[in-house]
Design a protein around this nucleic acid. Sequence first.
DNA 1: GTCTATAGCCAGATAGAC
DNA 2: GTCTATCTGGCTATAGAC
Lengths: 206, 206
Amino acid sequence: MIVPMAKIPFKEQMRRVREDAIVASVNRLLAEKGFDAMTVDEVAADVGIAKASLYKHFESKEELAAAAMVRVLEQALEFMAALEAGPVEGPLARLKAVTRWTMQVQLAGEMPSLPAQNSALRNALAAHRVYLDRLMEVSEKLGAWIDAAQKTGQLNAALPPELVLYTLFARACDPVLGVLNATGQYSDKQIIELLLITCFKGLGER
Amino acid sequence: MIVPMAKIPFKEQMRRVREDAIVASVNRLLAEKGFDAMTVDEVAADVGIAKASLYKHFESKEELAAAAMVRVLEQALEFMAALEAGPVEGPLARLKAVTRWTMQVQLAGEMPSLPAQNSALRNALAAHRVYLDRLMEVSEKLGAWIDAAQKTGQLNAALPPELVLYTLFARACDPVLGVLNATGQYSDKQIIELLLITCFKGLGER
DNA sequence: GTCTATAGCCAGATAGAC
DNA sequence: GTCTATCTGGCTATAGAC
């Protein structure tokens, strides 16, 4: 269904472009250095505007990080929607495709990493409606695929579905990928295939 | 072989006890909050001495973290030596036993977590002789077990041994454990057995 | 809304008396 | 070696001119 576009004022368009540029910078810096090591000054310098201008768009450093997280979650939703519309059939194949996608994002240096324990940030995220909403959407879609894959016996049905979900999220920012990449011994493709094996088949021999 | 103990001066003994207490506190705080969120003031308060006194023992916050890492690596070496002397036979069984041990340490809130990206800390560790030495010892012992397990077909021989090694290190501080524990739905024993499955058998069905 | 300049704070590290 | 008190730098956030 095609929805007629509402006319968007010019100023509003400018604002969006600016904010997109900001969030893209934040995303890259978060991926590179992590939340704590990233400074708002760096973000401003990277975008090419003054720090005070940043604060006209986002009211805190935490808001910046949340915006970056929302962005990557929406990209994930977009990818997952494309998967459902496309030729990739079966829940397991789709779960693997998403996992592969998260690894590609990591390799591209575009997976924001939020230290799991930072309390100021966690509190901000736990109160951030949009972030929670997107996170829920992704979780529900993945959850449906996990359910289906367990019912058809493609995934180990003895594992609690939440465990599978948490594991997939964890693999999306698994440090092993970075370490493996740093050795310089493997191509991106090899790294992804190796990590897919350890994730879905484990380290053991069958 | 029993080595005759050199006589240790009383003052030296006092110093060691103090430093052990300091490192134990650091270890716990690192596990609880991570390196960035941990403050030297907190450490001093937790130990019950003044901050300036801390700096008579360790010359920087990074040195504190390094000492905690050395401590846990030495505990690992001790555990691994006991494994080799004990009833646990076979390289795979030993690898699983070590993995189980690291998860118990995590559950006990005693696995120091060093954000993978902090550059000041990483530089300090990369130049820390004792830390690197212990890390190498652990890696070599694990590497030998991995080799053996791959030769006997207990571990997937198609995986590069380094990948297996990095994966085991990563699982020693896997956030999935904490998340699973936070749900309150599983006992420690269940959590450990579930994570051992995902690590060695993967998410898929065989 | 953009900028320069600065406030305010916090944490790592140190001075200096005992 | 331990303490109290302080220095110092860097970071988030804001004031105020334009």
